[in-house]
Design a protein around this nucleic acid. Sequence first.
DNA 1: CAAATTATGATTGATTATGATCGTTTCTGA
DNA 2: TCAGAAACGATCATAATCAATCATAATTTG
Lengths: 269, 269
Amino acid sequence: MHERERHRIILSAVQEKPVITIQDIADLTEASEATIRRDIASLHVKGKLRRVRGGAEAVHPPQLTPLAGRHFHVSESENADKKRAIAREAVALCEEGDAIIINGGTTTFQMVHFLSSRRLQVMTNSFAIAEHLVKNSKSSVTVPGGAIYREQSIILSPFDNDVTRNFYGKRMFMGSQGVGPFGVMESDALIIQGEQKLINQADELVLLVDSTKFARRSSLILCPLQRVTTIITDEGISDGDRKMVEDAGIQLIIAKVNQDKARNSVSVA
Amino acid sequence: MHERERHRIILSAVQEKPVITIQDIADLTEASEATIRRDIASLHVKGKLRRVRGGAEAVHPPQLTPLAGRHFHVSESENADKKRAIAREAVALCEEGDAIIINGGTTTFQMVHFLSSRRLQVMTNSFAIAEHLVKNSKSSVTVPGGAIYREQSIILSPFDNDVTRNFYGKRMFMGSQGVGPFGVMESDALIIQGEQKLINQADELVLLVDSTKFARRSSLILCPLQRVTTIITDEGISDGDRKMVEDAGIQLIIAKVNQDKARNSVSVA
DNA sequence: CAAATTATGATTGATTATGATCGTTTCTGA
DNA sequence: TCAGAAACGATCATAATCAATCATAATTTG
């Protein structure tokens, strides 16, 4: 077995149990104790773990790592903060066991972070969302059939005889390119196709849009504003746009962007 | 094999396992160790992977794999070289542009490495295969609709109105738990379901089984032996089993594990 | 078509990792 | 405290890996 592979196994093992013995690792890796000692010594000077007599222990108390590790490796634009806050509110609408539909998109993708600790029934046409949920959540995941479009990470079939028809959700979550009195707008024809397949498969339609989307206009109209049940946006929404939403009889949720940037960075080197 | 093709294979392999050895890649590509070293050095300066003693590792440290997954890797690695050799022959059957179906399984999964440099039309019910091909190949990828079963990494729908029916392939590749005069056997009911949906969607049925599978018996019969067009196995097949295959009128391809330059895969018709 | 360039594979000796063995140190329980 | 056991560090022989080199095959260029 390769040196790096052993190191990974050791680090993985030391995460699960706070302390691990040389013997344990030797059995796991089928390497000699001498080698394991050298490995632990090496990882010790790198600060990946702490060497103790008889084995090794984790440097960090294990309660930090399971949640923090995966989620903060993407630090995108400040727009991502808004998207994330909006996504948090979206997930907050869901109760355990709910059947929901998540349409592919950059905003809706942010929902996966908050879904990781939940157990729902999720249908999504986003390959990326499905992938993430399968790996990092306990939710059941269903996808429609079809070809996978890499750029949008959307699964789409030209046919209508789809499993989509057999899934009915409490809510459908979707993003969009623009929102106005004329309705919900989108620019990508592929995304429109996927959305139209799913849009009638749920009771409620929840729209996730940051406030800049109220000013944007796009070429293709997906559905009239009245079709939307709830809009989740950020604090930047203008009074006029707020009134427009209210007049359409739509529930409006304002997501507050969390200001404290106390992000515990996890060493990845 | 072309340099670019090797590079693709190397990058593909480093995605699946976080760390790979020179020997692994040499087996995979049938190139000399010296060449692989040069390749790794080249990919290292390009930042595509990180060079380490004995092999290479992915630049992006994959999230700490749960120990369960580790056991999967360790337990499967015993026959991995045979499976790889078999998978290589399977991919060798395909020409550019072919429409093929790959059924989920540990042996068929090995095909992804050799597919990374190809451009085919692939339908697969394996989420893991789809994921890998989307990320590491130029092939078009289609999946059936349905729920994703984590353990088997299979997408399966209880309904029959599936996109599956709209995809027709030249060949279908599948593994199995056991092969005998009674037919092709499988133990997992889920896998059987998926296979039966796909089995009639291709002209030829290619079975990928290492030679130990001829001795194994399992509970569920998937299809009679005569349904199979081609069987790819390793050199461990006994004369009796070889005769059984021949009597059934099935093409037999023996994959050689050792990376001899002479690729005499014997076909008996 | 020939020359030049490049990629590849084999060989060599140097470097490094590994496993076994040794004597020493530390822990454990009576 | 003492004896026995376990863990440790050091050392060495062996095996694996590496870098450098050269000859040959493949490719490109003139």
